[in-house]
Design a protein around this nucleic acid. Structure first.
Length: 438
RNA sequence: GUGGGUGUAGCUCAGUUGGUUAGAGCACCAGGUUGUGGCCCUGGGGGCCGAGGGUUCGAAUCCCUUCACUCACCCCA
Protein backbone atom coordinates (compact mmCIF):
# COMPACT_ATOMS: atom_id res chain seq x y z
CA UNK A 1 0.00 0.00 0.00
CA UNK A 2 1.16 3.46 -0.81
CA UNK A 3 0.82 5.84 2.12
CA UNK A 4 -1.54 8.59 0.99
CA UNK A 5 0.23 11.88 1.53
CA UNK A 6 0.96 15.17 -0.18
CA UNK A 7 3.98 17.45 0.04
CA UNK A 8 4.32 19.78 2.98
CA UNK A 9 2.64 23.13 2.47
CA UNK A 10 0.35 21.75 -0.26
CA UNK A 11 -3.31 21.03 0.35
CA UNK A 12 -6.39 19.21 -0.89
CA UNK A 13 -9.54 21.28 -1.13
CA UNK A 14 -12.57 19.17 -0.21
CA UNK A 15 -16.00 20.19 -1.54
CA UNK A 16 -17.07 22.10 1.59
CA UNK A 17 -14.02 24.36 1.43
CA UNK A 18 -14.07 24.49 -2.35
CA UNK A 19 -17.59 25.91 -2.37
CA UNK A 20 -16.44 28.70 -0.08
CA UNK A 21 -13.39 29.41 -2.23
CA UNK A 22 -15.56 29.54 -5.33
CA UNK A 23 -17.85 32.03 -3.62
CA UNK A 24 -14.96 34.30 -2.70
CA UNK A 25 -13.49 34.07 -6.18
CA UNK A 26 -16.91 34.91 -7.60
CA UNK A 27 -17.24 38.02 -5.45
CA UNK A 28 -13.72 39.16 -6.25
CA UNK A 29 -14.21 38.57 -9.97
CA UNK A 30 -17.45 40.56 -10.05
CA UNK A 31 -15.79 43.62 -8.57
CA UNK A 32 -12.77 43.31 -10.85
CA UNK A 33 -14.92 43.06 -13.95
CA UNK A 34 -17.08 45.99 -12.88
CA UNK A 35 -13.95 48.15 -13.22
CA UNK A 36 -13.12 46.86 -16.67
CA UNK A 37 -10.49 44.28 -15.78
CA UNK A 38 -10.31 41.23 -18.02
CA UNK A 39 -9.20 37.70 -17.23
CA UNK A 40 -5.84 36.34 -18.22
CA UNK A 41 -3.71 33.34 -17.39
CA UNK A 42 -0.10 32.29 -17.84
CA UNK A 43 1.72 28.97 -17.48
CA UNK A 44 2.65 27.85 -14.00
CA UNK A 45 6.15 27.13 -15.29
CA UNK A 46 8.51 29.88 -16.44
CA UNK A 47 12.19 29.86 -17.32
CA UNK A 48 14.13 30.39 -14.14
CA UNK A 49 15.91 33.46 -15.49
CA UNK A 50 12.54 35.14 -16.02
CA UNK A 51 11.88 35.01 -12.31
CA UNK A 52 15.31 35.21 -10.74
CA UNK A 53 16.70 38.43 -9.42
CA UNK A 54 13.37 40.26 -9.23
CA UNK A 55 12.23 39.70 -5.68
CA UNK A 56 15.31 40.47 -3.65
CA UNK A 57 17.71 38.07 -1.99
CA UNK A 58 15.15 36.50 0.32
CA UNK A 59 12.56 36.09 -2.42
CA UNK A 60 14.97 34.41 -4.81
CA UNK A 61 15.76 31.76 -2.25
CA UNK A 62 12.09 30.78 -2.12
CA UNK A 63 11.65 30.12 -5.84
CA UNK A 64 10.86 26.49 -6.72
CA UNK A 65 13.48 25.79 -9.35
CA UNK A 66 14.52 22.64 -11.16
CA UNK A 67 15.81 21.18 -14.42
CA UNK A 68 13.42 19.92 -17.09
CA UNK A 69 14.27 16.87 -19.20
CA UNK A 70 16.17 18.97 -21.67
CA UNK A 71 18.36 20.35 -18.92
CA UNK A 72 16.72 23.79 -19.03
CA UNK A 73 16.39 25.61 -15.77
CA UNK A 74 12.69 26.20 -15.06
CA UNK A 75 10.76 27.51 -12.08
CA UNK A 76 7.23 27.56 -10.75
CA UNK A 77 5.88 31.09 -10.77
CA UNK A 78 6.52 32.92 -7.50
CA UNK A 79 3.89 35.55 -8.07
CA UNK A 80 1.65 36.81 -10.88
CA UNK A 81 3.34 40.16 -11.39
CA UNK A 82 6.54 38.99 -13.06
CA UNK A 83 4.70 36.70 -15.51
CA UNK A 84 2.45 39.64 -16.35
CA UNK A 85 5.47 41.83 -16.99
CA UNK A 86 6.83 39.15 -19.28
CA UNK A 87 3.48 39.01 -21.12
CA UNK A 88 3.35 42.76 -21.59
CA UNK A 89 6.85 42.75 -23.02
CA UNK A 90 5.96 39.82 -25.30
CA UNK A 91 2.78 41.37 -26.71
CA UNK A 92 3.42 45.07 -27.27
CA UNK A 93 0.24 45.27 -29.34
CA UNK A 94 -1.93 44.98 -26.21
CA UNK A 95 -4.09 48.09 -25.91
CA UNK A 96 -3.04 50.29 -23.04
CA UNK A 97 -3.89 50.96 -20.35
CA UNK A 98 -4.01 47.20 -20.11
CA UNK A 99 -6.18 46.08 -17.23
CA UNK A 100 -6.17 42.40 -16.42
CA UNK A 101 -7.00 40.18 -13.50
CA UNK A 102 -5.54 36.78 -12.81
CA UNK A 103 -6.63 34.32 -10.15
CA UNK A 104 -4.15 31.50 -10.00
CA UNK A 105 -1.86 29.50 -7.76
CA UNK A 106 1.72 30.56 -7.07
CA UNK A 107 4.46 28.58 -5.34
CA UNK A 108 7.00 29.53 -2.73
CA UNK A 109 9.43 27.15 -1.02
CA UNK A 110 8.70 28.79 2.30
CA UNK A 111 8.33 27.09 5.65
CA UNK A 112 4.57 26.71 6.13
CA UNK A 113 2.75 28.11 9.13
CA UNK A 114 -0.62 29.60 9.97
CA UNK A 115 -2.03 31.29 6.87
CA UNK A 116 1.10 30.47 4.90
CA UNK A 117 1.46 27.69 2.35
CA UNK A 118 3.81 26.58 -0.38
CA UNK A 119 1.04 26.56 -2.93
CA UNK A 120 -1.48 29.35 -2.62
CA UNK A 121 -3.79 31.44 -4.74
CA UNK A 122 -3.40 35.08 -5.51
CA UNK A 123 -6.04 37.29 -7.07
CA UNK A 124 -4.14 39.98 -8.93
CA UNK A 125 -5.28 43.11 -10.67
CA UNK A 126 -2.83 45.29 -12.54
CA UNK A 127 -3.01 48.39 -14.69
CA UNK A 128 -0.25 48.59 -17.26
CA UNK A 129 0.74 51.64 -19.25
CA UNK A 130 -0.32 54.61 -17.19
CA UNK A 131 1.53 56.77 -14.72
CA UNK A 132 -1.66 58.26 -13.34
CA UNK A 133 -2.01 57.96 -9.59
CA UNK A 134 -5.73 57.59 -10.21
CA UNK A 135 -4.86 54.07 -11.34
CA UNK A 136 -3.24 53.43 -7.96
CA UNK A 137 -6.27 54.98 -6.32
CA UNK A 138 -8.58 52.69 -8.25
CA UNK A 139 -6.72 49.63 -7.00
CA UNK A 140 -7.19 50.70 -3.42
CA UNK A 141 -10.87 51.51 -3.97
CA UNK A 142 -11.27 48.01 -5.38
CA UNK A 143 -9.49 46.59 -2.35
CA UNK A 144 -12.04 48.32 -0.14
CA UNK A 145 -15.01 47.19 -2.25
CA UNK A 146 -13.88 43.57 -2.45
CA UNK A 147 -13.29 43.22 1.28
CA UNK A 148 -16.61 44.85 2.08
CA UNK A 149 -18.37 42.57 -0.36
CA UNK A 150 -16.87 39.48 1.23
CA UNK A 151 -18.18 40.66 4.57
CA UNK A 152 -15.09 42.10 6.23
CA UNK A 153 -15.28 45.17 8.38
CA UNK A 154 -12.20 45.01 10.57
CA UNK A 155 -9.54 45.89 8.05
CA UNK A 156 -7.22 48.77 7.44
CA UNK A 157 -5.56 49.64 4.16
CA UNK A 158 -2.14 51.16 4.76
CA UNK A 159 -0.78 53.39 2.04
CA UNK A 160 2.61 54.95 1.47
CA UNK A 161 4.90 55.93 -1.35
CA UNK A 162 8.36 54.58 -2.05
CA UNK A 163 9.24 57.94 -3.55
CA UNK A 164 8.78 59.57 -0.16
CA UNK A 165 10.87 56.98 1.59
CA UNK A 166 13.48 57.14 -1.14
CA UNK A 167 13.72 60.89 -1.05
CA UNK A 168 13.99 60.74 2.70
CA UNK A 169 16.72 58.11 2.59
CA UNK A 170 18.70 60.02 -0.01
CA UNK A 171 18.36 63.24 1.93
CA UNK A 172 19.65 61.51 5.02
CA UNK A 173 22.66 60.20 3.14
CA UNK A 174 21.79 56.52 3.03
CA UNK A 175 23.49 55.03 0.02
CA UNK A 176 21.50 53.42 -2.78
CA UNK A 177 22.52 49.89 -2.02
CA UNK A 178 21.36 50.11 1.55
CA UNK A 179 17.98 51.62 0.77
CA UNK A 180 16.07 48.31 0.48
CA UNK A 181 17.46 47.13 3.80
CA UNK A 182 16.58 50.53 5.28
CA UNK A 183 13.01 50.10 4.04
CA UNK A 184 12.71 46.63 5.45
CA UNK A 185 13.71 47.82 8.89
CA UNK A 186 11.22 50.70 8.74
CA UNK A 187 8.56 48.25 7.63
CA UNK A 188 8.91 46.28 10.86
CA UNK A 189 7.62 49.17 12.93
CA UNK A 190 4.22 47.53 13.42
CA UNK A 191 5.79 44.31 14.62
CA UNK A 192 8.83 45.23 16.66
CA UNK A 193 7.96 48.83 17.54
CA UNK A 194 9.97 52.01 17.54
CA UNK A 195 12.83 50.75 19.68
CA UNK A 196 13.14 47.54 17.72
CA UNK A 197 13.47 49.45 14.46
CA UNK A 198 16.00 51.86 15.92
CA UNK A 199 18.10 48.97 17.17
CA UNK A 200 18.08 47.34 13.75
CA UNK A 201 18.94 50.60 12.02
CA UNK A 202 21.78 51.29 14.44
CA UNK A 203 23.23 47.88 13.67
CA UNK A 204 23.31 48.54 9.94
CA UNK A 205 23.68 52.29 9.54
CA UNK A 206 25.09 55.26 11.31
CA UNK A 207 21.99 56.82 12.77
CA UNK A 208 22.47 60.48 13.54
CA UNK A 209 20.56 62.19 16.29
CA UNK A 210 18.75 64.28 13.69
CA UNK A 211 17.72 61.21 11.71
CA UNK A 212 16.39 59.64 14.87
CA UNK A 213 14.39 62.76 15.67
CA UNK A 214 12.95 62.88 12.16
CA UNK A 215 11.95 59.24 12.28
CA UNK A 216 10.19 59.87 15.56
CA UNK A 217 8.52 63.06 14.41
CA UNK A 218 7.34 61.90 11.02
CA UNK A 219 7.63 58.22 10.24
CA UNK A 220 6.61 56.89 13.63
CA UNK A 221 4.34 59.73 14.65
CA UNK A 222 0.81 58.56 15.25
CA UNK A 223 -0.63 61.91 14.22
CA UNK A 224 1.25 61.93 10.97
CA UNK A 225 0.23 58.40 10.13
CA UNK A 226 -3.19 59.80 9.27
CA UNK A 227 -4.19 61.34 5.99
CA UNK A 228 -4.30 64.76 7.61
CA UNK A 229 -0.56 64.48 8.06
CA UNK A 230 0.26 64.84 4.38
CA UNK A 231 1.25 68.47 4.77
CA UNK A 232 3.40 67.68 7.78
CA UNK A 233 5.24 64.93 6.00
CA UNK A 234 6.10 67.41 3.27
CA UNK A 235 8.69 68.93 5.58
CA UNK A 236 10.47 65.63 5.70
CA UNK A 237 11.31 65.65 2.01
CA UNK A 238 11.56 69.41 1.51
CA UNK A 239 13.63 70.28 -1.51
CA UNK A 240 13.48 66.77 -2.93
CA UNK A 241 11.55 66.75 -6.22
CA UNK A 242 10.87 63.02 -5.95
CA UNK A 243 9.38 63.60 -2.54
CA UNK A 244 7.02 66.27 -3.82
CA UNK A 245 5.95 63.97 -6.59
CA UNK A 246 5.26 61.22 -4.09
CA UNK A 247 3.15 63.56 -2.02
CA UNK A 248 1.09 64.68 -5.00
CA UNK A 249 0.40 61.05 -5.85
CA UNK A 250 -0.86 60.36 -2.37
CA UNK A 251 -3.06 63.44 -2.58
CA UNK A 252 -4.51 62.13 -5.83
CA UNK A 253 -5.23 58.80 -4.19
CA UNK A 254 -6.89 60.57 -1.29
CA UNK A 255 -9.01 62.58 -3.73
CA UNK A 256 -10.19 59.38 -5.43
CA UNK A 257 -11.28 57.99 -2.09
CA UNK A 258 -13.33 60.97 -1.12
CA UNK A 259 -14.87 61.11 -4.58
CA UNK A 260 -15.77 57.45 -4.26
CA UNK A 261 -16.95 57.71 -0.70
CA UNK A 262 -14.47 55.34 0.91
CA UNK A 263 -14.91 55.89 4.66
CA UNK A 264 -11.78 57.13 6.42
CA UNK A 265 -11.82 54.34 8.97
CA UNK A 266 -10.73 51.85 6.34
CA UNK A 267 -7.48 53.45 5.24
CA UNK A 268 -4.55 55.46 6.44
CA UNK A 269 -1.37 56.95 5.05
CA UNK A 270 1.26 55.18 7.01
CA UNK A 271 4.84 56.29 6.53
CA UNK A 272 6.25 53.27 8.25
CA UNK A 273 4.91 51.02 5.47
CA UNK A 274 7.71 49.98 3.11
CA UNK A 275 6.97 46.43 1.79
CA UNK A 276 9.67 43.89 1.20
CA UNK A 277 9.77 43.37 -2.54
CA UNK A 278 12.50 45.27 -4.31
CA UNK A 279 10.61 46.21 -7.44
CA UNK A 280 8.20 48.81 -6.06
CA UNK A 281 8.86 52.38 -7.18
CA UNK A 282 5.84 54.51 -6.23
CA UNK A 283 2.66 54.21 -4.19
CA UNK A 284 2.51 51.02 -2.12
CA UNK A 285 -0.35 49.55 -0.17
CA UNK A 286 -1.32 46.61 1.95
CA UNK A 287 -4.30 45.56 4.03
CA UNK A 288 -4.06 44.28 7.55
CA UNK A 289 -6.73 42.73 9.71
CA UNK A 290 -6.70 43.07 13.45
CA UNK A 291 -8.40 39.85 14.53
CA UNK A 292 -6.26 36.89 13.50
CA UNK A 293 -2.63 37.94 13.37
CA UNK A 294 -1.64 36.77 9.92
CA UNK A 295 0.37 39.45 8.19
CA UNK A 296 -1.37 41.14 5.33
CA UNK A 297 -4.32 39.92 3.27
CA UNK A 298 -3.63 42.16 0.28
CA UNK A 299 -0.51 43.88 -0.92
CA UNK A 300 0.75 45.75 -3.92
CA UNK A 301 2.16 48.87 -5.41
CA UNK A 302 3.60 50.62 -8.41
CA UNK A 303 6.48 49.01 -10.29
CA UNK A 304 7.45 51.35 -13.11
CA UNK A 305 10.83 49.78 -13.82
CA UNK A 306 9.94 46.12 -13.89
CA UNK A 307 8.66 45.72 -17.45
CA UNK A 308 11.77 47.51 -18.65
CA UNK A 309 13.72 44.43 -17.62
CA UNK A 310 11.96 42.45 -20.36
CA UNK A 311 11.70 45.12 -23.01
CA UNK A 312 13.59 48.07 -24.43
CA UNK A 313 10.72 50.35 -23.61
CA UNK A 314 9.97 50.83 -19.95
CA UNK A 315 6.26 50.71 -19.20
CA UNK A 316 4.68 52.16 -16.06
CA UNK A 317 2.57 49.69 -14.10
CA UNK A 318 0.76 49.29 -10.84
CA UNK A 319 -1.04 46.37 -9.29
CA UNK A 320 -2.25 44.67 -6.18
CA UNK A 321 -2.86 41.17 -4.98
CA UNK A 322 -5.46 39.52 -2.74
CA UNK A 323 -4.34 36.44 -0.84
CA UNK A 324 -7.16 33.94 -1.18
CA UNK A 325 -5.98 31.65 1.63
CA UNK A 326 -5.54 34.53 4.03
CA UNK A 327 -9.06 35.72 3.28
CA UNK A 328 -10.31 32.19 3.91
CA UNK A 329 -8.30 32.04 7.15
CA UNK A 330 -9.93 35.26 8.34
CA UNK A 331 -13.39 33.99 7.38
CA UNK A 332 -12.69 30.77 9.28
CA UNK A 333 -11.69 32.80 12.29
CA UNK A 334 -14.89 34.80 11.98
CA UNK A 335 -16.81 31.52 11.97
CA UNK A 336 -18.16 32.05 8.48
CA UNK A 337 -15.91 29.69 6.60
CA UNK A 338 -16.24 26.48 8.57
CA UNK A 339 -19.61 25.25 7.40
CA UNK A 340 -19.68 22.68 4.66
CA UNK A 341 -21.97 24.00 2.00
CA UNK A 342 -23.44 22.21 -0.97
CA UNK A 343 -24.79 23.51 -4.22
CA UNK A 344 -27.29 20.65 -4.34
CA UNK A 345 -30.86 21.68 -3.52
CA UNK A 346 -32.77 18.42 -3.72
CA UNK A 347 -32.22 14.72 -3.20
CA UNK A 348 -34.70 12.41 -4.92
CA UNK A 349 -34.95 9.28 -2.81
CA UNK A 350 -35.49 5.88 -4.35
CA UNK A 351 -38.32 4.06 -2.65
CA UNK A 352 -38.26 1.02 -4.83
CA UNK A 353 -35.89 -0.05 -7.58
CA UNK A 354 -38.79 -0.07 -10.07
CA UNK A 355 -39.30 3.67 -9.55
CA UNK A 356 -35.91 4.72 -10.84
CA UNK A 357 -37.26 5.65 -14.28
CA UNK A 358 -39.84 7.88 -12.59
CA UNK A 359 -37.13 9.52 -10.47
CA UNK A 360 -35.00 10.24 -13.50
CA UNK A 361 -37.96 11.97 -15.16
CA UNK A 362 -38.70 14.02 -12.02
CA UNK A 363 -35.06 15.00 -11.72
CA UNK A 364 -34.92 15.96 -15.38
CA UNK A 365 -37.91 18.28 -15.05
CA UNK A 366 -36.44 19.90 -11.96
CA UNK A 367 -33.05 20.37 -13.58
CA UNK A 368 -34.68 21.99 -16.57
CA UNK A 369 -36.13 24.44 -14.04
CA UNK A 370 -32.53 25.27 -13.02
CA UNK A 371 -32.47 23.29 -9.79
CA UNK A 372 -29.49 21.24 -8.71
CA UNK A 373 -30.87 17.77 -8.16
CA UNK A 374 -29.32 14.49 -7.15
CA UNK A 375 -30.99 11.08 -7.41
CA UNK A 376 -30.22 8.30 -4.93
CA UNK A 377 -29.02 5.18 -6.66
CA UNK A 378 -30.15 2.28 -4.51
CA UNK A 379 -33.46 1.59 -2.75
CA UNK A 380 -32.02 1.59 0.75
CA UNK A 381 -34.07 2.38 3.81
CA UNK A 382 -35.49 5.89 3.82
CA UNK A 383 -33.68 6.39 7.12
CA UNK A 384 -30.42 5.89 5.36
CA UNK A 385 -31.31 8.08 2.40
CA UNK A 386 -32.49 10.88 4.67
CA UNK A 387 -29.40 10.84 6.79
CA UNK A 388 -27.36 10.95 3.61
CA UNK A 389 -29.18 14.14 2.62
CA UNK A 390 -28.73 15.55 6.11
CA UNK A 391 -25.01 14.82 6.13
CA UNK A 392 -24.57 16.41 2.76
CA UNK A 393 -26.52 19.46 3.86
CA UNK A 394 -29.06 19.04 1.07
CA UNK A 395 -32.07 21.14 2.16
CA UNK A 396 -34.88 19.27 0.35
CA UNK A 397 -35.76 15.62 -0.15
CA UNK A 398 -38.29 14.24 -2.59
CA UNK A 399 -40.13 11.07 -1.59
CA UNK A 400 -42.33 9.11 -3.94
CA UNK A 401 -43.68 5.76 -2.76
CA UNK A 402 -46.83 3.73 -3.44
CA UNK A 403 -49.06 6.28 -1.65
CA UNK A 404 -47.88 9.15 -3.81
CA UNK A 405 -47.93 7.08 -6.99
CA UNK A 406 -51.57 6.14 -6.49
CA UNK A 407 -52.51 9.79 -5.92
CA UNK A 408 -50.23 11.20 -8.59
CA UNK A 409 -48.40 13.40 -6.06
CA UNK A 410 -44.93 13.82 -4.63
CA UNK A 411 -43.85 14.41 -1.02
CA UNK A 412 -41.36 17.21 -0.41
CA UNK A 413 -39.49 17.18 2.86
CA UNK A 414 -37.79 20.30 4.18
CA UNK A 415 -34.74 18.97 6.00
CA UNK A 416 -33.99 22.12 7.96
CA UNK A 417 -37.49 22.57 9.31
CA UNK A 418 -38.36 18.88 9.52
CA UNK A 419 -41.66 19.52 7.78
CA UNK A 420 -43.08 18.00 4.64
CA UNK A 421 -45.95 18.52 2.25
CA UNK A 422 -47.64 16.59 -0.53
CA UNK A 423 -47.54 18.45 -3.85
CA UNK A 424 -47.67 18.22 -7.59
CA UNK A 425 -44.34 18.35 -9.38
CA UNK A 426 -44.98 21.89 -10.56
CA UNK A 427 -45.84 23.18 -7.08
CA UNK A 428 -42.87 21.33 -5.69
CA UNK A 429 -40.52 23.12 -8.05
CA UNK A 430 -41.91 26.54 -7.24
CA UNK A 431 -41.79 25.81 -3.50
CA UNK A 432 -38.11 24.95 -3.69
CA UNK A 433 -37.36 27.90 -5.95
CA UNK A 434 -39.09 30.32 -3.59
CA UNK A 435 -37.13 28.94 -0.68
CA UNK A 436 -33.91 29.66 -2.55
CA UNK A 437 -34.82 33.31 -2.61
CA UNK A 438 -35.18 33.49 1.15
C1' G B 1 17.88 29.17 6.94
C1' U B 2 17.12 29.70 12.92
C1' G B 3 14.43 28.29 17.39
C1' G B 4 10.26 26.00 20.32
C1' G B 5 6.12 22.34 20.73
C1' U B 6 3.61 17.75 19.51
C1' G B 7 3.29 12.53 17.55
C1' U B 8 -1.79 6.93 20.94
C1' A B 9 -8.56 4.74 16.54
C1' G B 10 -11.02 8.48 10.69
C1' C B 11 -11.12 13.27 14.21
C1' U B 12 -10.24 15.54 19.35
C1' C B 13 -7.64 13.66 23.18
C1' A B 14 -6.94 10.43 28.24
C1' G B 15 -3.39 6.77 29.66
C1' U B 16 -0.74 7.19 37.25
C1' U B 17 6.09 5.94 40.11
C1' G B 18 7.50 1.34 33.64
C1' G B 19 3.24 -3.84 35.21
C1' U B 20 -2.28 -8.23 32.68
C1' U B 21 -5.92 -8.12 26.72
C1' A B 22 -4.37 0.31 25.44
C1' G B 23 -9.22 3.80 26.77
C1' A B 24 -13.14 7.89 26.19
C1' G B 25 -16.00 11.31 23.29
C1' C B 26 -17.26 12.34 18.34
C1' A B 27 -17.59 9.97 13.53
C1' C B 28 -18.69 5.21 11.03
C1' C B 29 -21.65 0.40 10.65
C1' A B 30 -25.86 -2.66 12.43
C1' G B 31 -30.24 -2.96 15.34
C1' G B 32 -34.28 -0.88 18.57
C1' U B 33 -38.33 1.61 14.24
C1' U B 34 -39.99 -3.01 6.73
C1' G B 35 -42.53 5.03 4.64
C1' U B 36 -38.84 9.38 7.46
C1' G B 37 -32.43 12.24 9.29
C1' G B 38 -31.30 15.09 13.97
C1' C B 39 -32.67 13.09 20.28
C1' C B 40 -32.36 8.47 23.08
C1' C B 41 -30.94 3.17 23.95
C1' U B 42 -28.15 -1.49 22.60
C1' G B 43 -24.34 -3.77 20.01
C1' G B 44 -20.14 -3.72 16.42
C1' G B 45 -15.81 -2.74 13.46
C1' G B 46 -11.69 -0.35 13.77
C1' G B 47 -4.61 0.72 16.81
C1' C B 48 2.85 -1.91 14.35
C1' C B 49 0.93 3.74 20.62
C1' G B 50 5.07 7.98 13.96
C1' A B 51 9.58 4.76 12.58
C1' G B 52 14.30 2.38 14.03
C1' G B 53 17.49 1.00 17.85
C1' G B 54 18.72 0.64 23.21
C1' U B 55 17.81 -0.14 28.77
C1' U B 56 14.57 -3.82 31.38
C1' C B 57 11.90 -10.01 33.53
C1' G B 58 8.47 -6.39 31.29
C1' A B 59 8.16 -0.06 27.41
C1' A B 60 2.68 3.93 24.76
C1' U B 61 5.52 5.32 29.34
C1' C B 62 12.81 5.78 30.30
C1' C B 63 17.36 6.83 26.78
C1' C B 64 19.39 7.65 21.71
C1' U B 65 18.54 8.35 16.52
C1' U B 66 15.32 9.54 12.72
C1' C B 67 10.90 11.06 10.27
C1' A B 68 6.41 13.70 10.21
C1' C B 69 3.29 17.51 11.74
C1' U B 70 2.82 22.25 14.03
C1' C B 71 3.90 27.25 16.04
C1' A B 72 7.19 31.34 16.02
C1' C B 73 11.45 34.13 13.71
C1' C B 74 13.23 35.70 8.80
C1' C B 75 10.27 36.99 4.71
C1' C B 76 5.59 37.31 2.66
C1' A B 77 -0.34 36.79 0.38
Amino acid sequence: MIIPQIPKGFRDFLPGKMNLRKKIIGAVTEVFESFGFEPMDTPCLEYAETLEGKYGEEGDRLIYKFQDRGGRSVALRYDLTIPLSRVVATYPELTRPFKRYQIAPVWRADKPQKGRFREFYQCDIDIIGTESAYADGELVIITYLVLKKIGFDNFLIRINNRKLLNAFAVKEGINDRQVPSFFRSIDKYDKIGRDGVMKELQNNFTVSKSLETKLDDYIFSEENRKQTGLSEIAKLVEGMPAGDEGLRELETIRDSFSAYGVPEKYYMFDFSLARGLDYYTGPIFETIVTEPRIGSITGGGRYDNLIGLFSRNPVPATGTSFGLERIVTVLDEMGIGGSDGTMTRILVTLFDADLMADNLRIAKTMREADLNVEVYFSPQKLKKQLSYAANRGIPFVVIQGPDEISQGTITLRNMNKGTQEVLSLGDLISTVKNSVLQ
